[in-house]
């Protein structure tokens, strides 16, 4: 690892100021960033830890019934504190990585990195969540812009993620057994005005909504409604863990499992 300065601001304003410096990089739980630094794939001058900013930690209900998760909240905390209000999200958080990773990794870090096989992007897109930053609010539909690409500007910090709580929801992940990342993961969320289906791990474009499944499930929320539906293999990721055709097949399988578990 190349050396860097480490700072741990106690307020959001101080963090934003530190991130405006040259070669500054935000550090969440570091469960992706620290391994990346070890491989010398990144060389920040300053790492700005976001974990000591009280207003960015924790889970609470908002006045309009959404679930607000602070950007620096760990997966373990989401798993514990969202269990009653939004079990679909808690279930997703409780299967990210392994227990020690969940005690460090944060929702903001996961969404800012936007790994094409990460779990949280499926929940954010699958609920139409709002990504709140120090500067603005970004709709999930506008936020994800392809593999490792997001709407975030340089130095912008995810302070909060606001999830509209669905009537029922579920996330099903087919794990890549070594990394515990999603080979394919599908988040299904049913709202009064329709169903959203978001797929992670599968596409070369990163997380995406499966609109055909959404339309079918919005009409009838049952596994049967998905009969005959499939996504094309074209554009799916192909690597040593699975071919594009295999991932396309898994998208339909995981969607059916998620609906069965949610219904």
């Amino acid at each position: 690892m190349y050396n860097f300065e480490f700072v741990k601001p106690a307020t959001l304003a101080d963090a934003v100021a530190a991130l405006s410096g040259e070669d500054a990089q935000a550090l969440g739980g570091g469960q992706t960033l620290i391994p990346t630094l070890k491989q010398r794939l990144n060389q920040p001058g300053t790492l700005v830890s976001l974990l000591s900013i009280p207003e960015m930690v924790g889970v609470c209900k908002t006045d309009d019934g959404a679930l607000s998760v602070g950007g620096a909240t760990t997966h373990a905390t989401v798993s514990a504190e969202a269990a009653v209000d939004f079990p679909g999200l808690a279930g997703l958080a409780s299967h990210i990585g392994d227990p020690a990773v969940r005690n460090r990794g944060t929702i903001g870090g996961s969404l800012a990195n936007n790994d094409p096989a990460a779990c949280y992007p499926a929940a954010a897109l699958g609920t139409g969540a709002t990504i709140v930053t120090n500067a603005r609010e970004i709709a999930a539909d506008d936020y994800f812009q392809g593999m490792f690409a997001t709407a975030l500007e340089e130095g912008e910090v995810i302070t909060e993620v606001r999830f509209p709580v669905p009537e029922v929801s579920n996330y099903q992940k087919f794990v890549q057994p070594a990394s515990r990342f999603a080979l394919v993961g599908v988040f299904v969320a049913k709202y009064a005005d329709g169903v959203r289906v978001a797929v992670t791990g599968a596409s070369e474009e990163g997380v995406f909504r499966w609109s055909e499944a959404e339309a079918a499930l919005s009409a009838i929320f049952s596994v049967d409604a998905l009969a005959g539906l499939s996504v094309p293999a074209d554009g799916m990721i192909g690597d040593l863990h699975g071919t594009p055709a295999y991932r396309a097949h898994l998208v339909a399988v995981m969607t059916r499992r998620a609906v069965a578990a949610a219904a």
């Binding site: 480490f6 741990k8 570091g30 469960q31 620290i34 391994p35 790492l47 830890s49 974990l51 373990a76 227990p99 020690a100 990773v101 005690n103 460090r104």
Partner: peptide
């Protein structure tokens, strides 16, 4: 009080 991987946490943290 919680388990972490000490190879993936900075001493300064």
């Amino acid at each position: 009080g919680v388990a972490v991987k000490s190879c993936t946490m900075l001493a300064a943290e």
